[in-house]
Amino acid sequence: MKATDAMRSTRAELLRLRRWPAVWVTLGAWTALALMFGYVFGYLAYKTGDNSFSNEGQTMYSVLHDLMPVSVPDVLLQGMPMFGGALMMVLGAIVAGSGYGWGTWKTVFTQGPSRAATLAGSLAATTVFVVGTVLFTLVLYLGVSLTIAVTESQDVVWPSAGSLAESTLAGVLVLEMWALAGFALGTLARGPALSVGLGLVWALVVENLLRGVGNLLGAVEALTHVLPGTAAGSLVGSIIGVDAGGGTPGVVDTISGTQAAWTVLAYVVALPLLSLALVRRRDVAS
């Protein structure tokens, strides 16, 4: 694999992803959901004093505290294990899977760059979007929380650079892992529909069920400790803490933060290798 070929492939993929409405719909859905669960519901609850689901058992002070700039590192991460991961999985699955039905991988594989270089380019372009999404969300949150602080005449206390960096890095890791999982599924299924469907059922349903069963069966519990959802949830949980009453869906403390970080990292390395093995070996017959 030549570096220039991987670079060309990355530029080509960035162009076609940038102009793909489906990518912006997916990222737009993340932004809208993140904004709603991160700030809109909390702020409405604070203003109206309702006991809605998102502020159950919390004092008004703590609700407002969550909306302040100092809480941005926590808010940034709280939606990522669950719907953030699910949406990134959709992104990865459509990036990898759609090309088989359209016959575009066939066209791309006859352009010059090797399949390895092509895949590297596609993964790099996807990663650019994932990192971009996390950074955009961070900036958006800082802006929104600052606006709320000023509006509510609160003292503006910024989070430490260390905690911002930690949250950003963890966020990138978690979202990247799910995007790569979607990419591998899309490659495996050679289409977006089946891979998105199976991936979502896995991430949103099966892992939660397994964690439930794991409380009763030791063997299942050992299995859940190495699953991606558990790892992502535990990584986030170790940073933002897990509420006693269940708290944010998907955020758990099943394994330690260190173990969780290494597990997520292992997936981030292994999933592209799986995609690469599939893409290099296969006949492209459609």
């Binding site: 080509a12 006859t110 010059g112």
Partner: peptide
Amino acid sequence: TARVGALVEGPGFYPYLSGRDNLLVMARYR
């Protein structure tokens, strides 16, 4: 492959891109 141009079993392009953008993507690969 870099020295061969091919159209095999029907044109495979991104449906959401314009014809020009599709070629631009392939030109970047090349």
